[in-house]
Every structure is written in C-alpha cells, then in structure tokens.
Nucleic acid binder design. Structure first.
Lengths: 244, 244
DNA sequence: TAGATTGTTAATCGATTAACAATC
DNA sequence: TAGATTGTTAATCGATTAACAATC
C-alpha cells in the first residue's frame, strides 16, 4: 500500500496517477481526469506530430497521417483522442491548428508551468541549456546546487542558488515542478523538502526509488536501466560480438 | 503494420519487443524469450535493489523487503521473478547474491555490451562521463560527432571520431548498442546507418519518432514529454501559481 | 509441528486492436 | 449519392492483484 506510491522504474510513473479507475463508466469525468495513463503518456507525441504538421503547412490531417508521424496506429490515435473529446470531422479529418490547441489544453500547457532544477552537474547543466524546455511551455525559474563553487555562477541565464532554503525558493518562484539531477544519495532528502514546499511534480534522473505522498507525481528517467533493457533484447537475440 | 515498428513515445518501447505473445502458455520459452515486457522493464530496478541490499551486508531477503526497496508490491515482485525461474526458497526467502546473479544473467549483463555514442554536445558529454554506464556492465567504445571542432578532442578518455564512417566504426568496435544525442533532424539518418552496420539497440534522446526494422529495439527518452506528462497532472490538480 | 514465505493459479483490471455505424 | 473518415463499441490481449497451496 506504500510501495505503490513510489516512483516506477523506467519512467512509467503508473502508480502516481490518481483518480483513474474510480469511475466504472463515464461518470464524474471533469477537467481531464479519467484520461487513461497510457493515453496521457502518448499525448506529447501527438502534440509534436501536430507541431510538425503545422510547421509543414498542413492544414487538415487524418488519423492515418498523424498516427504515422507519431509512430502509432490510426486506431490507437483515434481511441486516445476520443478520451479528450470529439475534435475531428467524420469523412474529413482533423483541423491541425484546432486539434493542436485542444491537445495543448488537455496537457495543461495553456498556462506556463514553473520548473526548478536541483543539481547543476554535467547533466543538470545540459538540461538547463536544453531549448526544448522553454520551447514547450515551461519556464525554468531557478537552478540550485549544494557546491559552493557552483553557487553564484550563471548557467542558462540564471544565477545558481544555494541548497539551504529550498522551501523559500519554491515559495518565491512559484515552482510546481522540479527536475532532480542530484547524486542518488541526496535525491530523497531534496525531494522531501521540495514536496513539503509545494512541488507536485518531480522528474528525477537519480537512480533509485523516490517515495512521495499520494498527491505528488514522479517520473523517473534512468539511463542505466534503459541500457539494461536494451541489453536484455540484445542477449535474447544472440549476444556476443557484433559485426566483423 | 509499419507504425507499430517505430519507437514508442515516453520510453516505453513496447512495440519493439518481438517474440512475446506467440506462445499461449509455457511452450518454447528459451533464453529468456517470453518474459513479459513490463517485467523486463522492472528488472533493472530489482537489480539495483539487490545491489543495495548486498552493499548493506544483507545475505537473505524476502519479497517484502526487496519489493519495498524497488518500489513495487511483494506480489508483483514474486510474479516478475517467477518469469525468470524459481530462485527463492519457500518459507525462507531469497539469497541476495544468488538472485542478483540470476537477474544479471537474465538481463544479458553476463557479457559486457559495447556502446557507441553519437552526438557529443552538452547532453552527450554528460552521458559519456556518467559513471553508471561503465559501472553497470557496459563499455563505452566510441564517441562520434559531426562538428570538426569537436572531433579529435578527448572526452571521458576517448578521442571523438568523425561521423563519416559509422559503418566502419561499428565494425571495428563491435558496438551493438547506440546512444543518440544528436539534433532531432539527423537522428533518423544516423540511426539508419548504425542499424545497417549491425547495431540492434538504440537509446535516443532526440525528440521525434525513430523508424527501425523489426529486429532492432528502440528506447526513447524525451525530457520535454516527461515534463508535459507532469504538467497534465499538475493541471488536473488545479493549475495556477504555486505557493505564496 | 507451527510459522513463514515462496511460486502459482484465478480474478480483476486496463490497454490495444478490429470492426463498423454514424456522418461529413 | 458515393466515398471517406471519424468516434465508438465489442473482442482480444496483457498486466496487476489477491489468494492460497506448496514447502521450507
């Protein structure tokens, strides 16, 4: 009962989805609650496909074309979109701009989300400079590090703050989402402080399980785990050396 | 039929698992084939939990304790392990060292896997220096970049190679797994070359869909997508500003 | 034996796929 | 009307959970 509330391995974050499943049929589905987790996880891919279509000057698209761009089947795309509403026209297709806006709203990207990053090492540095974050409706509002040599330096246009007042920093910046690129052994402690201060979403790159209260959502990205999953299939395929 | 062979959004990589499901019951389950994808994705977490237990001097453990460390339920852990074999003792528990070795073998970590990284930008640099890769049974055998200013520099103890002979590089190094940290617009082309040269596993950090032949496994990590999934739940919870 | 804990079976649940009626 | 394509329903499939018989 406690284990279920922790971060799933491999970035699934299944256990962290609340409210899903507590309605047998169609009742009480307000504000996007009730969208299946698997569907939510695919929405960013659809949004990107729509962005690409729009950038290519496509005005009207079909489930077939859009699904191809997103790497899923047309049936799955239509099923997924049906959880958001009816935004297509039978016999015609989808208006790219309109559907794009609807998916953005469904994902909660209508308002800018404020993001705080803790751990300005190699990886944190790279993520802070990653253009995709600001480009996609997020605002990086603070960088934090425990190392006095790093505190005070400017990274991605922000002065790195010390780690001794996370609560105050969250309060001042209004951050609701945190990115954790700290060493594994401090990740849980930092996470606890952030959650106590009001953060409700955590994206962690630190290996290991993060325990959070039920109202907090955790996504875990673990590079070593991903490689190990690839190794499994490599092995199942016939191990040993490669070419030559 | 073609869309199903592409990389899933959000690091799921479901579609890339071959051979699963083609045996109704227990028949023809050789060399780890037949382990459900969801189970495979959790094995790295179990391995880490076992490493931690071993490091803490634990000799014998239970599904309860191990599941707690890994952030899953005891029932799920036992169910998952049952797909690998019977490595526990009823009424007693699991021998940490023995189970750890079995999970390592199941994951294909008995042999070292050779990994090649393409795209030595901010993120590629950070990943090349990430200790977790070498620590966990992988050998980083080559770094590649297209930028002449980067080629020839030494990163993580390796001289960065040019991108003009990926086939030769794969052949010389025997790499079977590739990490892609290139710009999105060249990821597919680089991937095609690597796959043609014999790479069978790809971990991509470039946003967008990668198309690969059926024998190749793709895992996609997309930071922007992860943040968007967190934004969905943030919104569902009640949007707007945070504290203060 | 009595207590503990696994491995497995059965029940439930959720996700995917296929098919088609609605409708443009 | 004829052709196209959605949104939905039903069927299938896989994953999770719960319960317990096997067994140490």
């Amino acid at each position: 009962m406690d284990a279920r509330r922790t971060a799933a391995r491999g970035g699934t974050g299944r256990g962290a989805v609340r409210g899903a499943g507590r309605d047998g049929g169609r009742v009480a589905r307000r504000r996007g609650e009730g969208v299946p987790p698997a569907t939510v996880a695919r929405l960013p891919g659809y949004l990107r496909a729509l962005d690409a279509a729009a950038a290519g000057g496509v005005v009207l698209t079909s489930s077939q074309e859009l699904a191809h761009r997103a790497g899923v089947t047309p049936a799955q795309l239509r099923k997924d979109l049906s959880h958001l509403g009816s935004y297509g026209r039978r016999g015609v297709g989808y208006d790219v701009q309109h559907l794009r806006e609807q998916v953005r709203v469904a994902l909660g990207l209508a308002d800018v989300r404020r993001v705080l990053l803790v751990g300005v090492g190699n990886l944190g540095h790279a993520l802070a400079n990653y253009a995709g974050i600001a480009e996609r409706g997020f605002s990086l509002v603070a960088l934090v590090d425990a190392d006095p040599a790093v505190v005070g330096t400017t990274v991605a246009g922000l002065v790195v703050e010390p780690a001794d007042d996370l609560a105050g920093l969250v309060a001042r910046t209004g951050a609701t989402i945190a990115v954790l690129t700290t060493p594994a052994d401090v990740a849980q402690r930092v996470c606890d402080e952030l959650v106590a201060a009001g953060v409700v979403g955590v994206l962690t790159f630190a290996p290991g399980t993060l325990r959070v209260p039920p109202h907090v959502d955790v996504r875990a990205v673990d590079v070593a785990s991903e490689l190990q999953i690839l190794a499994f299939h490599d092995r199942a395929r016939g191990a040993g050396g490669g070419a030559s």
